[in-house]
Design a protein around this nucleic acid. Structure first.
Lengths: 379, 379
DNA sequence: CACGGTAATTGGATCGATCCAAAAGCGCAA
DNA sequence: TTGCGCTTTTGGATCGATCCAATTACCGTG
């Protein structure tokens, strides 16, 4: 058989262009680029991946051909052969919470600069939905996942991910404290700090308010409360669990103040699980003619934008969601690059933000020209 | 040639299991499932896609084999041959805004039930970033995109998407009012309604506050203001543009009230572009010892959670972000199924939410037991 | 001029599914 | 027995890239 090599005459006898009746103008392939540049497929592939093996002159010719033909890289095809897909899965438990949205933005920041893209899923705290999505992620061959585990997630899930060889970084919460990759906030220290703050203001009877789902984040926050109280020899028995909604927070006002048959004294301060509950509680107080900071000290956790905006402004603990997202993404990329490396736990510090809701240090509560128009309070 | 069919003896002479030294236990392929079930690849493929061609008995056998081997579908491989990838791209312009987060959740809802997944990207209002991401979406062969165009997006972009044969649904904003798929809110009607509300309360001099970026959403809101004012023979010249941040909103307080050299009268009401600006403005008023609803009527737009929470609570226009996301996703799926169909524009209504920030109808402003603890104000 | 060594390029096999035309199995009538 | 139609199954060929072993080009040396 004769071998018709036509590398010198580009665009002449290529079988690819034998059907000029333009029904499918789509998908310029690497082979066509090769023909146009007068090189082989393999060489184009090397150029594509930035290999140092190709000569500079050749590289330029190939790149010119790619531009001329409007070539677009077909990652799907590449993924089939190569190991990597340059995609990851991101599972958050409640996207509608601004906190998680911010985290997502942080993840996106890092992935974007590294040429990765993320599949997103809102598990809405439903383990079934989480399972379904993880399954889908496997089918799409993602290189790894960032997981904010839904409440009720079984630790066994992580073992399954291991078996699947699917790198996973837990964020904000974790379902098992084994040595596993994790990025989050030091909730316990944050809670200790704000509890100490209340104690330093003279409060002795403090209630811990909010939280029903059992996960690591709840445990850590509660532990912070307990640790600080015990350190000062104070009772940590006043714990009121409730859903993490404004409505529930508002309803807790009664439980806190009207305690007819209570053997113990009423609390003078409410340490809320997060800002949402705290803001709700303040609304509840107001509806009863009471005021946070005067009649009851109230603190939150998270420092959501509303916290600076409420009257009185909410004393809370700031946790930078975006930064956690960035750290989680960076950690996942490291893990993908080196699946065998030792696990890392990245714990970011939190920061106490003192406002007026627990009796301001300078005690000009509420009133006229608000002294609280700090820079960081305005987005 | 003899034909050694070994359908009865599974797992005996298959070349797949010829290398038992378990270095790569991963990736059970369709071929292996076929071997285990004693059928051909093609048949397994048909089962996978739920074809009615295969006999019921065969289907069961194949499914049993898939379970037994722990088979997982490799969509990447399938995508290479088939047209569909069952993925879409979702580009939002500011994820950190809770409004877009909610929209994202809505998109996720619908895609999840249809077996699709979304790549997410936060364009942060940067057209370059938007371009880069769209490029990446093409490389990943997404079936379509949902686009909240970044401010400054050129209409030409949509033509490019057409040329690429990439179905696209615009959401919330659009860069060209040609007949194209779109899902959004009737901003103009919403603004008209709230303007009418102010007028009905007796306001004659009303300022339109906020917005710097030029896009359809700005145009529509402004048009609503103008239309309502003109209908009542009122001047619509008082327009104060500013960035969409709380800080800028706060700073607008001065511009609104201290107008030394102004030829025209000071406004009695401020119609804000959105809630963020309105909330900022209210803070600015408060810092000057003034109060929204008493000294200046203030309205917002979007009905973000904070709106119900501020003192006084903000009168605003509710737009259900989640629903828009759902509609956009449904529309995109229709378009993917039928690329040639006629374009659709889905415009959802908005709803006026009257609270206290522009002088409550029952004029018990601010004061004691708040009457506004409605159900919907509590998340 | 043959030779070794490096740099650059290449063709065939391959990843794991789908597509499609062809074939096998089967019941039934001529 | 043969032929026909129907259902069910099947084996290449294929999608568009990567991997790898092999080849070619080129240059300085002995």
């Amino acid at each position: 058989m004769a071998k018709p090599r036509d590398s010198s005459k580009p665009g002449s006898s290529k079988p690819a262009s034998s059907k000029p009746a333009g029904s499918k103008p789509e998908s310029v392939t690497l082979t066509e680029v090769a023909g146009h540049a007068g090189v082989s497929r393999s060489t184009v592939s090397l150029v594509l991946r930035g290999s140092p093996l190709v000569a500079a002159e050749t590289r330029e010719r190939v790149q010119a051909a790619m531009v001329a033909l409007g070539y677009i890289y077909n990652r799907g095809a590449a993924n089939l052969r190569a190991a990597r897909t340059h995609t990851v899965g991101l599972l958050v438990c409640e996207l509608n919470n601004p906190f998680y949205a911010e985290l997502t933005a942080g993840v996106d920041d890092v992935l974007d600069t590294e040429g990765f893209v993320a599949f997103i899923a809102n598990t809405a705290e439903q383990p079934e939905r989480q399972d379904r999505f993880l399954q889908r992620m496997r089918e799409h061959n993602v290189d790894g996942v960032i997981l904010c585990p839904a409440a009720g997630t079984q630790p066994e899930l992580l073992d399954r991910l291991d078996r699947w060889r699917l790198p996973c970084v837990q964020a904000l919460r974790f379902v098992s404290d084994q040595e596993r990759d994790y990025a989050g906030v030091d909730y316990q220290a944050g809670m200790e700090t704000v509890t100490e703050h209340l104690i330093s203001l003279g409060h002795r009877r403090i209630a811990f308010v909010g939280g029903t789902l059992d996960h690591s984040a709840y445990a850590a926050r509660h532990a912070g409360f307990t640790a600080a109280m015990r350190r000062h020899g104070l009772a940590d028995d006043l714990v009121l669990r409730c859903p993490l909604t404004r409505r529930s927070g508002a309803e807790m006002a009664d439980h806190l103040l009207n305690r007819p048959q209570a053997q113990t004294a009423a609390p003078t301060a409410a340490l809320c699980y997060n800002d949402v509950v705290a803001l709700g509680l303040m609304l509840g107080l107001e509806a009863r003619g009471l005021r946070a900071g005067r009649d009851l000290a109230v603190t939150g956790f998270d420092d959501v934008p509303e916290a600076a905006l409420s009257r009185p402004a909410l004393t809370t603990v700031a946790t930078s969601a975006r930064q956690i997202g960035q750290e989680a993404a960076r950690l996942l990329l490291r893990r993908i690059a080196d699946p065998q490396g030792p696990p890392e736990r990245i714990i970011l510090p939190s920061r106490l933000v003192v406002r007026q809701s627990c009796g301001a240090p300078s005690d000009s509560l509420g009133g006229a020209p608000s002294p609280s128009l700090h820079h960081r309070d305005l987005s």
